[in-house]
């Protein structure tokens, strides 16, 4: 039965990706990409990766679809059909695929216990020692936040940088000299995220849903030690709640609720919280991000450290997603303001 589900989902996955490749309307391609992400999330559940499935569903099917749609609203949704295609890309990808397929013949059987991945000492430690050493039932969380805390710090910084970079790119106005006017440049499409004032159903449903989305975000944030979840997923879910609010009630209302400069501050604050935990543990005489020292009891120290850095991660991810959303949704306003001056 499991094999049947697996095969069925994977066939759907391939059909979905082929659909993405062959449709010319980019809106359709984006929606199909969301569907592909959702199928991928189901496959991850089948492969025991519940935390990953959670993230993929929230990010791939949720946030990234919103981002693509935001971009399409600004750049137009039709791909120009092309007549003759050169055969080189097809040959190149077939070659790469052929080499990889040949290499997979040497890979161990899926699910076998004696592969280098499963036999490594690191795995032994993560799976069998971590419940005593860290005291957190969800091994993914203990590896993410404690054993590989430094890595995760780096990743949070990447997200922070991307958030800032998107704002820098999209809030800057393009100053074009008169003589440099590019021919055939259509006047900028007016897309304003002002919500839909007359649609009763989305308004009522959104009002009912948003508190629960935010509550669920908090649950995922603080329950991440015991079940699937954690700062990354919680941040994305939290941001999705606010983005839904903005889509239904308008960007201006969201900006009143959470001003852009406040988002910028908490974007940095999250990284600061994370790094701060590391500095505190250094001041107390241990290594950077060694949580054992944070409390008299090492296990309690680990719990405290993981809790605080997960909050840091959640805050940064929420703020970065909101920054990115503000960048895309506010772009047409920004341009309009410039033209008015």
């Amino acid at each position: 039965m499991e094999e049947f589900t697996d095969v069925f989902l994977m066939v759907l996955l391939i059909v979905g990706t082929l659909g993405v490749l062959y449709v010319n309307n980019l809106f359709v391609a984006t929606m199909l990409l969301g569907a592909v992400s959702l199928i991928m999330a189901l496959i991850f559940v089948n492969l025991d990766a519940v935390d990953v499935a959670f993230t993929e569903a929230a990010v791939g099917a949720g946030i990234s679809t919103v981002l693509y749609l935001g971009t399409l609203a600004l750049v137009g949704a039709n791909e120009k059909p092309r007549g003759k295609r050169s055969p080189i890309p097809l040959l190149a990808s077939l070659l790469v695929g052929g080499i990889l397929a040949y290499a997979t013949l040497d890979l161990p059987k899926i699910g076998s216990v004696d592969t280098p991945v499963q036999m490594s000492e690191v795995t032994e430690r993560y799976v069998y020692t971590s419940p005593e050493e860290i005291g957190v039932p969800n091994m993914v969380t203990s590896v993410l936040a404690s054993y590989r805390g430094f890595d995760t710090f780096g990743e949070v910084t990447v997200i922070f940088t991307a958030g800032i970079a998107v704002l820098l790119i999209l809030r800057q106005l393009h100053r074009r000299r008169e003589d440099e006017e590019t021919p055939g440049n259509p006047p900028f499409q007016k897309v304003k995220a002002e919500g839909s004032p007359h649609d009763l159903v989305p308004h009522v449903v959104a009002k009912l849903l948003i508190p629960f989305i935010l509550l669920f975000g908090l649950y995922v944030q603080f329950h991440g030690d015991f079940g699937p979840g954690g700062g990354f997923q919680a941040g994305v879910i939290f941001a999705a709640g606010f983005i839904l609010y903005s889509l239904v009630f308008g960007l201006d209302n969201l900006k009143k609720l959470i001003p852009v400069h406040f988002v910028e501050i908490i974007l940095a604050a999250g990284v600061l919280i994370y790094g701060g935990v590391g500095v505190v543990s250094m001041l107390k005489g241990a290594n950077f991000l060694d949580y054992n020292i944070l409390s008299a009891d090492p296990i309690a120290g680990q719990h405290l450290g993981i809790l605080i850095i997960e909050i840091g991660v959640g805050v940064t991810v929420t703020a970065a997603m909101l920054c990115i959303f503000y960048g895309f949704a506010g772009r047409s306003d920004e341009l309009e303001k410039n033209n008015g001056e």
Binding site: V52, T123, V140, G235
Partner: peptide
């Protein structure tokens, strides 16, 4: 199942969406 690939991919997904946005 091994938690390490899960950790690597979990963060990769979130970093991936941030870079896609860029």
């Amino acid at each position: 199942s091994n938690p390490l690939p899960h950790v690597l991919i979990l963060t990769a997904i979130v970093v991936g969406v941030a870079t896609t946005a860029l």
